Amino acid sequence: MLKKEYEIFAQFVKFPWQRFTFKEIKKLSGKKSEGYVYDALKRFVVSGSLKEEKAGNVVLYSLNVESLRTQSYAGFIAEYMAWNEEQIPYRDLEKIASKIPTDFYIFIITGSYAKNCQKKGSDIDIVIIVDDNTAPKRVYSELKYACEMNIPPIHLYVFKRSEMLAMLLDKKANYGTEIARNNLILSGGENYFRIMSEAMKNGFNG
């Protein structure tokens, strides 16, 4: 994927439930050429990564999140974006990840570091989502000391996959919705978008 195309597709990765007009994508991606944006969107539609639909006289584009190919593709782009943020202390987070006592997990940064608005002394909020056969308390206890001793301190949350899905489907505002709206996904991007796909099928819209 060319860098220009990546910058267009990234808008859908950030907000997978959102439907965008051509003008919105052109503005968000910062591209000046209408022809280039139009052609890129068409290529994504043809490949099955995006969906195209009409609402009156307006054409809307959205992420085809139900597609396995799109889940993999979006997960890769999300991880690529997360690993290229200058404000993140990646070495500290690598050490935490190495202590996670399960092979299946999604590793997410949220809070002020994900927004790049952290202050001196701000905690790093991280969320680890594990499969339903893994006890979150076990993961939390394994990582708690290392998180507390890190500088800056790491504020740790651990959820089962089903718990994350339940939060997304809850109509009340909760931490799951906050995670969906503000995140940097360091690992497990494809599985994150599988959860999003299931949530969106059942009514989640951000």
Rank of each mutant, 00 (worst) to 15 (best):
Y175K: 09
K99W: 01
L169R: 11
S29D: 05
F204E: 07
V139D: 05
L156P: 04
N57P: 02
F107L: 08
A135W: 08
N57K: 15
A40N: 05
T134G: 03
R91N: 11
T102C: 10
M1R: 09
R181F: 02
K144W: 06
E190N: 12
D103Q: 09
I88P: 03
Q11C: 14
V65M: 05
R43I: 01
L60T: 05
Q87N: 15
I88N: 07
I179H: 04
I100W: 02
A146H: 04
Y90I: 05
F76L: 14
A74G: 09
N150H: 09
Q118P: 05
S197Q: 10
A97Q: 11
L165Y: 00
I179C: 04
L93P: 02
I96W: 06
A199I: 08
R91A: 10
G188M: 02
F12Q: 08
H155G: 06
W83K: 15
S72W: 10
P101I: 03
E5W: 08
D103R: 09
G206A: 11
S72N: 13
E53W: 03
E163W: 06
M200G: 06
N191A: 12
D132G: 08
M164E: 02
Q87R: 14
G203K: 03
G56V: 07
M149A: 10
G111Q: 08
Y157R: 15
A40H: 04
Y38W: 13
K27P: 02
I77D: 07
H155K: 14
I108S: 07
L50V: 05
T21I: 00
L2I: 12
K201N: 15
I185R: 08
V46P: 00
H155F: 10
I124V: 13
E5T: 07
A135M: 12
D103W: 02
M164T: 05
K172R: 14
L63M: 12
I129A: 04
T110W: 07
K3W: 10
P101W: 05
I154S: 00
K99S: 01
P136Y: 00
A146V: 10
G121T: 09
S162V: 04
P152L: 06
D132S: 04
I96R: 03
E5G: 09
Y61Q: 04
F159P: 04
A55E: 15
A40R: 00
E178A: 14
N64W: 01
F9M: 13
Y73M: 13
L143D: 07
L165C: 06
E7P: 02
D125F: 04
G188A: 03
Y145C: 02
K3V: 12
T134L: 06
G203V: 02
K31W: 07
G75W: 07
Q11P: 01
A55Q: 14
W17F: 12
A114I: 01
E163A: 11
S62I: 04
A199G: 09
S33D: 14
N183S: 13
Y38K: 15
V130H: 08
Y73A: 05
L63I: 03
K4W: 10
I77A: 11
A180C: 12
I109L: 14
V130G: 02
Q71S: 01
S47Y: 10
E5Q: 14
